[in-house]
Design a protein around this nucleic acid. Structure first.
Lengths: 149, 149
DNA sequence: CCAATACTCTACTAATTCGATAGAGTTTAC
DNA sequence: GTAAACTCTATCGAATTAGTAGAGTATTGG
């Protein structure tokens, strides 16, 4: 399960991506209301995204947030790594947060590592290739996805 | 990230799957030692797997655990669902534990749901098709998997 | 020029989950 | 009939999650 925080982050980016006029910013409070996100919580999230170069902010009376790069260049993968940390299901498979499993004697012979390496590859193949712009486009008119477990 | 508990469960099943003689059981303490798993913790895990029909136990002096069905019929997916719960990254995508996102107005129009539906499909495609027997076979002699994030 | 508005930053907190540990009970073999 | 091994329930400390609180800083419209 991805965290609530990551869901909020992605939805906030969708809101920002929907703006037509270039240079137009959205207030935190507007995004919060539109997406039903607690405002103070969203503040932290946007700040985090800003520090990682996903969005920019303007301060003061007519401030707000806007995307730093086009929505078509912001992948789900990078947002999730910022908010939730590594995507890999085992620490010994993560690039950004590699850690040896302390109970694993020989990593290359680890039976379950091989399996989860394939899982991660498949996951990454979706998350690192899908952008905020992609999800905007496909938002409406699609068949309901199958429930999977 | 999958839980430590799930890792232990899968490794315990690997130990049980390696037994050659049919009908031969392993003590909890033997599995615990072989896989460096805290014994009391492993007790709970095996009990849980037993309740879900993955393993069987014999009590008393020459007791122990053994697989209820062949290793080739135990998938990673079913073990993970037992130990860690739903595989789907959003509650609104889970069959076994479906829950509406309370901040989501229209589920079928939810932008991020569509993306994670594809993630889950890909994940499931690996986990529900890979068995304990598969991972045993591939344990040795494989190239090191690429680190993925 | 100043007060209102909006972003910034740090700290705190309540609830839950995770990774165990503890200990008493039950079954079986020898 | 006792020792060995599984069974069951409870508890616990640490970490994480999902927020709240509040003081501070930058802009700007009037």
């Amino acid at each position: 399960m991805i965290s609530q925080k990551a869901k909020y982050a992605l939805r906030a980016l969708v809101s920002l991506a929907r703006i037509e006029q270039p240079g137009k910013a959205l207030f935190i409070s507007d995004i919060a209301e539109e997406q039903s996100i607690p405002k103070k919580f969203l503040e932290q999230i946007l700040l985090d995204l800003k520090r990682h170069g996903i969005v920019v902010s303007k301060r003061g009376k007519s401030g707000g947030y806007l995307l730093l790069k086009p929505a078509s260049e912001i992948t789900y993968g990078e947002v999730l790594r910022i908010i939730d940390g590594p995507i890999a299901p085992l620490p010994c498979l993560s690039r950004i947060a590699y850690r040896r499993c302390d109970d694993c004697l020989d990593e290359t012979a680890c039976e379950i590592r091989q399996v989860f390496a394939r899982v991660t590859e498949a996951t990454r193949d979706v998350l690192d290739k899908t952008t905020i712009a992609d999800s905007l486009a496909s938002a409406e008119g699609l068949p309901d996805p199958a429930l999977v477990d």
